[in-house]
């Protein structure tokens, strides 16, 4: 992955640390990441911040064996699309589980982890990952 400046990560803290997205009060749809306008209701919609519970189920997943730059030390690692209980979906790594133990429909919950380090700047990037629901 490319190296980015601090501002890029700083403005994503709420989203990546707190799993904060948005909800349209008009159609009740949830979005993660948050959107400026609701794609269904557009300007009629009313978007508000929404903090997701972090609980969900695995919708689909894969095990990455050929990683992008910066993820070499993690292989093999599981990446999944998680169905959040409020209705939105999110892409995340699954941790605290062996790849062969993951299945579609498995209940999971969000946790806070290191994502990767940037080589040149030394920035350490954090964010959510998901683990089996205890």
């Amino acid at each position: 992955m490319e190296e980015k400046a601090v501002s890029f990560y700083w403005r994503g803290f709420k989203e990546r640390y707190g799993l904060v997205g948005s909800k349209c009060e008009l159609c009740s749809r949830h979005f993660f990441p948050g959107r400026v306008i609701c794609p269904e209701c557009r300007r009629k919609g009313k978007m508000h911040e929404h903090r997701f519970s972090g609980k969900g189920k695995v919708y689909s997943y894969t095990v990455i064996r050929t990683p992008p730059t910066g993820f070499e030390i993690y292989i093999p690692y599981v990446v999944a699309i998680v169905d959040l209980e409020e209705g939105a979906r999110v892409v995340s790594q699954l941790v605290d589980v062996k790849p062969e133990e993951v299945s579609i429909g498995m209940p999971v919950e969000a946790c806070f982890r290191k994502i990767r380090e940037q080589n040149q700047s030394g920035l350490v990037l954090y964010g959510f990952k998901f683990r089996p629901l205890k």
Binding site: M1, P33, S60, Y61, I64, P68, V79, I104, I115, G127
Partner: peptide, 21 residues
């Protein structure tokens, strides 16, 4: 990029999830 690639998902990984499903 910000919501898929950030977490280590690759392009083959995207189609792998479609295949799995």
């Amino acid at each position: 990029r910000d919501n898929e690639a950030y977490f280590g998902l690759t392009f083959p990984g995207v189609y792998a999830m479609m295949a799995k499903r």
